[in-house]
């Protein structure tokens, strides 16, 4: 059953990656690779989280997979890494936590007269903010890491004639 869960997770992450990517007008040839990367990254996070690893660390590993994957696949479609990995990262943005930030802010303001409730929503606001910001930062930073390690390759992904380079 666990494998089915992973596959379902990967499938929906792929659909989400394609859809959110489509808003930003990616090249059509990049769509299959965006889907693949989104699925791999999200499934990786899903696996790690079901083994009890926290969402920030799991997102970091997901981001690393997407980053290295985009370096590897970018050469095939002559796309810069960011064109592949930004849409692939979008399904990993922790929307539920972001929603709870807004929710707890409203409830905090609505419960100003009630100290217990107020403190509870105050705590909820900060814990959700911390998770959201950390996850987004780690996602982007870890996916960018391969650029620093393999600079030469990362900078010439869109170059078409590498023959001239070797000649």
């Amino acid at each position: 059953m666990f494998i089915t869960d992973i596959l379902i997770d990967a499938f929906f992450a792929a659909v989400a990656g394609i859809g959110f990517g489509a808003i930003s007008d990616p090249p059509l040839k990049a769509f299959p690779y965006i889907a693949l990367l989104a699925a791999a990254g999200h499934a990786c996070r899903f696996c790690l989280m079901s083994y009890g690893i926290d969402i920030a660390t799991a997102s970091m590993f997901g981001g690393l997979i997407i980053g290295f994957g985009s370096l590897w696949l970018g050469k095939r479609v002559h796309c810069p890494m960011t064109v592949l990995y930004i849409p692939a990262l979008l399904p990993m943005i922790p929307g539920k936590f972001a929603y709870r930030i807004v929710f707890s802010l409203i409830m905090f303001l609505q419960n100003m007269d009630n100290p217990t409730e107020r403190t509870r929503y105050f705590e909820m606001f900060f814990s959700n903010s911390i998770v959201t910001l950390t996850v987004i930062f780690l996602l982007a930073a870890s996916a960018t890491l391969p650029i620093f390690i393999f600079q030469k390759r990362a900078f010439s992904l869109t170059r078409h004639n590498n023959k001239q380079l070797s000649a």
Binding site: F20, I86, L90, I93, A98, Y99, I136, A140
Partner: peptide, 18 residues
Amino acid sequence: ATSVLYLVPGVPLINGVI
């Protein structure tokens, strides 16, 4: 919670961190 997530400006957010 998910109904508004299509609006999240993910590209500038990630570009900013990069």
